[in-house]
Nucleic acid binder design. Structure first.
Lengths: 222, 222
DNA sequence: GTCTATATATGGATAGAC
DNA sequence: GTCTATCCATATATAGAC
């Protein structure tokens, strides 16, 4: 639960750029955006994570990006579109992370450790982006929400698939696969809510701890 | 993660009244409030849970409570005070629930099952209130936040105490007590984010599942 | 204690110059 | 593509009658 107030420092570009920058080099999927647009997204992500979407003003976003309020609208049609772009890229990046981790693992047990640990670490390292992805979802327009939902289904699916594979191979023992997948995702997602950058737990430690907990939970009676 | 949009129906009075109504009969601790004040708190809790604190208008609250906008200010000095009252009562109720469940259990294992299962069920049954307690925290004033933080520390403490008692008695096997306590709380808290009233999982099923998962997690290698 | 009416501020978004 | 200036809607909270 953690009883401290998360004091969110400005996003360092290095920490988040990778998740918001255009999906470089992928044939077909590349939506090219200008440097200024990326700068605005970084500024907005910072502000949304700190105050939430409704409490963030376009003036605040513009000011953080070093622009006038009107300057933002050259690159994004509305505040909501800005939220959507950040949210879409964040979801896609999180999904890619999980898919790759699951694919590269040697066994279902190691896949489980890798995806839950990695997803938890991601929600620590990118906790501002994680908060937007997980907690500002409802402020998207119905159309944009529908698009993001597809990405969320993929994410659910990766975890459930790994659990099912482990149960089939006999490596894992899970009573209720969907419920366990959901609980494991909850553990990782909630990291974005309580994580504080300078705190005792580092993203690396969180990865180890949560990866271990996931394996423990799914091995069970043994 | 759950990919659906939580459609939050109006709070039924029966579902939440118990958590917002004055702490009846307790000597000294009773802050008496009028029926109208309770009605306003119910209306505000409904609106806050649906749209979040900043996106909720006082007009919406007043309208749901059957009052004019001005009528609200007779009972609460500001929208933030209203959030604080709801938040304080919600936290206190959740804490009391945990303390009682831990106290009444026959063993650390059963205490663990009861508190994690009960806390999870609470976040389903009172998911509107749970969302406010867990996700609107940052919108409290610094003074009010400080007061709520004390209640949050109590909640953390109950879980950690049960785990420690189990480890000491040899019933439970936990590597890192604070980290495990945090992860278990995360599982339960996150229920408030994804729970949908008419969905497949009932509060009772959630209680069972999450209680079992907690015991599994803390028994480990056995 | 509730209302109508409104003061006052603030926000999202646009117009039009450069 | 960026700016200054501003429109217009909406929000919190208050004044004052009943």
């Amino acid at each position: 639960m953690l009883s401290t107030v998360p004091s969110t420092p400005p996003l360092t570009e290095t920490a988040v750029l990778a998740a918001l920058a255009p999906e470089g080099g992928r044939p077909g999927g590349a939506t090219d955006v200008s440097d200024t647009a990326v700068r605005i997204m970084l500024a907005a992500a910072d502000a949304f994570a700190e105050h939430g979407f409704p409490a963030t003003t376009t003036r605040d976003i513009a000011s953080r990006a070093g622009l006038s309020p009107a300057g933002v609208y050259v690159h994004f049609a509305s505040k909501e579109v800005l939220l959507f772009e950040i949210s879409r890229r964040g979801h896609a990046r999180a999904r890619d992370l999980l898919v790759e981790a699951a694919r590269d693992a040697a066994s279902p047990t190691e896949a489980l450790r890798a995806i839950v640990g990695g997803f938890s670490r991601w929600h620590a390292e990118h906790h501002q982006l994680g908060r937007i992805v997980q907690f500002e979802f409802r402020h998207l327009s119905p159309e944009h929400r529908a698009e993001v939902i597809e990405l969320r289904k993929d994410i659910d699916g990766v975890v459930a698939d790994v659990l099912r594979a482990g149960v089939e191979s006999g490596e894992l023992d899970v009573d209720d696969v969907p419920a366990t997948a959901l609980a494991l995702l909850s553990m990782a997602i909630d990291v974005a809510r309580w994580y504080v950058p300078g705190g005792r737990r580092t993203p690396e430690a969180i990865e180890r701890t949560y990866g271990d907990l996931a394996v423990r939970l799914a091995h069970g009676r043994g």
